[in-house]
């Protein structure tokens, strides 16, 4: 007889016998503990720590046998359980008791379990709702992200995050071999690039991100253009828009054309 099997008949039984075990996926140590408490039909406020701890450790063993990653959080809870058990075995320390402890070393764990259970159930209640774009559909925009981002009117404003994304997508498009180009001195600088963008914006109302670098697709050009755009944003000379999710990114002057001209000249000093 396998001693390990005798020790923990509940969980490893099925596994050792070679048939597949239904292994519930637990979302964390608290989830597992709740499962064990429910399975053993014990009162959550009066947990038989020794029993539950043994089953908890069995489960961790099983996870290891199945080559599942045992997250540190599970091990932390195991040590917490063992700590609680050892404190329950030891006679209460007179000094310590008079100072703080209300008696039951399990109290803190029980409180956390009850709290977790509440949110777990709240999660299930929320999850049972009909989801937009899955069970429920709106008339015009079935994509919730899109309809949500669309405000009262007009294009949506782009966050810095999306701008950086666009920049990275561009960098990825640059042909590989151009990485080895020797930089031809300081042919490009941000101030020049800013003035270039501003003069382009004087003739036209809108400008597309791709347009700015389409003639010269080198990493240097893309980076300088990007820095220039960031600087323009910081100086509040342009505003950035996106047509829709994953759409093209557009720039529009944030000020009237005549003001933009004078402001453009002033840019050179801070850069």
């Amino acid at each position: 007889m396998n001693p390990a099997r005798e020790e923990n008949p509940t969980l490893l039984d099925g596994f050792r016998d070679g048939y597949s075990v239904h292994l519930d996926k637990f979302d964390g140590p608290l989830d597992l503990l709740l499962h064990l408490i429910r399975k053993n039909e014990v009162d959550i406020c009066d947990i038989p720590i020794a029993d539950i701890t043994r089953q908890y450790l069995d489960y961790i063993k099983l996870m290891k046998v199945l080559n599942l990653d045992v997250a540190g959080d599970f091990l932390l809870m195991a040590s917490t359980l063992l700590h609680i058990k050892s404190r329950m075995l030891l006679p209460p320390d007179d000094e310590e008791e008079s100072e703080e402890e209300e008696g039951d070393p399990r109290a803190e764990l029980v409180r956390r379990l009850l709290e977790y259970q509440q949110y777990k159930e709240a999660g299930m209640v929320i999850g049972a709702r009909a989801l937009l774009g899955r069970e429920v559909f709106t008339r015009a925009c079935p994509d919730p992200a899109l309809s949500a981002a669309r405000t009262e009117e007009g294009p949506l404003e782009v966050s810095l995050f999306e701008l950086v994304d666009a920049f990275r997508a561009l960098l990825a498009r640059i042909p590989k071999e151009s990485f080895h180009d020797v930089a031809p001195g300081d042919s490009l600088n941000i101030a020049d690039c800013i003035n270039e963008i501003l003069s382009l914006l004087q003739d036209r109302d809108t400008l597309q991100f791709d347009e700015l670098i389409k003639d010269e697709l080198t990493s240097e050009r893309v980076i300088v253009t990007f820095l220039a755009l960031l600087e323009l944003c910081r100086l509040k000379l342009i505003r950035i828009f996106q047509n829709g999710e994953y759409g093209a990114i557009w720039f529009i002057p944030a000020v009237a054309p005549e003001q933009a001209g004078s402001a453009g000249e002033a840019v050179q000093s801070p850069v």
């Binding site: 709240a122 999660g123 929320i126 774009g133 899955r134 069970e135 429920v136």
Partner: peptide, 27 residues
């Protein structure tokens, strides 16, 4: 739902238990 999705593709996936728990806690 089952009739609507014959024409419109559902774009929202079911949420995992951990996602729902986290959302509930934050909410």
């Amino acid at each position: 739902q089952e009739y609507v999705v014959r024409h419109i593709k559902a774009k929202t996936a079911k949420f995992s238990q951990s996602a729902l728990e986290t959302l509930a806690i934050i909410a």
